[in-house]
Design a protein around this nucleic acid. Sequence first.
DNA 1: GAAAATGGTCAAGCAGCTTGACTACTTGAC
DNA 2: GTCAAGTAGTCAAGCTGCTTGACCATTTTC
Lengths: 147, 147
Amino acid sequence: MQNSEALALTAVLLAAAGELTQRINDGVLARGFEARPAYGFAFTRLAPDGATVTELGAHLGVTKQAASQLVEELVRKGYAERRPHPEDARARLIVLTERGWECTRAAEEAAAEAVRSWVAVLGEGQVRLLRDQLSRIAPHGPIRPAW
Amino acid sequence: MQNSEALALTAVLLAAAGELTQRINDGVLARGFEARPAYGFAFTRLAPDGATVTELGAHLGVTKQAASQLVEELVRKGYAERRPHPEDARARLIVLTERGWECTRAAEEAAAEAVRSWVAVLGEGQVRLLRDQLSRIAPHGPIRPAW
DNA sequence: GAAAATGGTCAAGCAGCTTGACTACTTGAC
DNA sequence: GTCAAGTAGTCAAGCTGCTTGACCATTTTC
């Protein structure tokens, strides 16, 4: 594979990721939630059993201070709440509120809607293959903005 | 495809795009260029015959003011230069300098290097397929940060 | 128990974008 | 030709989301 092709791959990858992200965010906004893309990735970490601020920061690849600011924002908008941590009095467990869960479901719906247009072009099997291939090469590190 | 799978696709897509972008940037830095990811996407627009500030802004999906600041940065670092536009005295044609071309080639090499690790996992054919599939669904609009 | 490490927050600073205002030039109507 | 409207580019100020640095409360380590 030529060098220029590798750069082209990067470009389409970024373009696809960027478009998908934006369409999901638009869909979430259209469903009446005040959100930005980072929320979604925070939600996926908070969803199962909650997380501490530091854990959230690690998941998003930002400092704990930045994560703390994000949490403050989520709390202010009613998507999450701080609870005392059951095992560590220094820490707080950040969990989703009911509205936070609603917003998460809205994001999933919006994502499904956006992906549907890809299915229309490539077919379901190819999209599934795409996801499987990407999951094999995607890093397991933090989710970060692409630049 | 379930809603949650669609969100998972978005996550791996972003993770892959983000990692690739960062590895390319690291590779470019390692080759002795002072750069950030946005440069690469600016270069691809400037490369063939140059472009105006406004055109560059449209390509990157930012305002012409932001594009103007980026150009100022590229000029200051020696990657590009402003020339009078041959057909419009209001405009300036921004073209790459020799060092700008070198940086572009460095980015291509770094990209090829990063993609090579994917080829090692998926095989060349699958990576090529990946690129082809993505290019069919990637928007033809501006290249923007994923969030 | 004391020292070091860790979780969280406050505060200040910074990078990269935005909007608004302006000048220089071009385009189009008459 | 002339003049109004539109466009290219820049300057300036402001905003957002991150960073680094400092600090307190609590936990861990020895």
